[in-house]
Design a protein around this nucleic acid. Sequence first.
DNA 1: CATGGGATTGACT
DNA 2: GTCAATCCCATGC
Length: 180
Amino acid sequence: MLEVAPDLLGCVVSFGGCEGVIVETEAYHFTEPACHAYVGVTPRTAVLHGPPGTAYVYRSYGIHALLNAVCEAEGVGAAVLIRALEPTAGIEAMRMRRGAGELCNGPGKLTQALGIGLGENDTSLVSGPVRILRGEPLEYVTGPRIGITKAAELPWRFCALGSRDVSRPWPPGLRASLAA
DNA sequence: CATGGGATTGACT
DNA sequence: GTCAATCCCATGC
């Protein structure tokens, strides 16, 4: 999975006529406490332990939807959280949903921008409504994960270089690439 | 059956 | 920088 997460950078997420290039991901694995699958297989986390290539949409703080891509073999319990996109198509539709401001520079924002909701949970990323298309590999930097309270020190955050559509704080290496 | 936590965001001081 | 909003579900009694 630690190979899949950076591999997703540069891939395209497509949903409802909107598309965006993945520029930030975070890896989650059931062996570390930050992952929902850590507690074991439950009705909600079952999809995390399911077959790879499946979307796992989760509501955080009762408000925001977070989009994950399940990876690893069935029964492993691992996923890659998609934290940020760079919009490439359907931008007007995103603006209608999001209003003014940044569209996809945060996990909760990108789902709202694309219109992805809890209804897309447990759908295929290959043949379902939400699709992930293979794209060009991107250069990236790693860093600690953001916004979690457990195991935040693991360097399982992957940010594409040269994109401003990434949630802050940016790792030092990414700041340098933006300045250039 | 009741309670608390959670991978976030946006507004206010 | 700090604080509140708000819903699902895992855990505990």
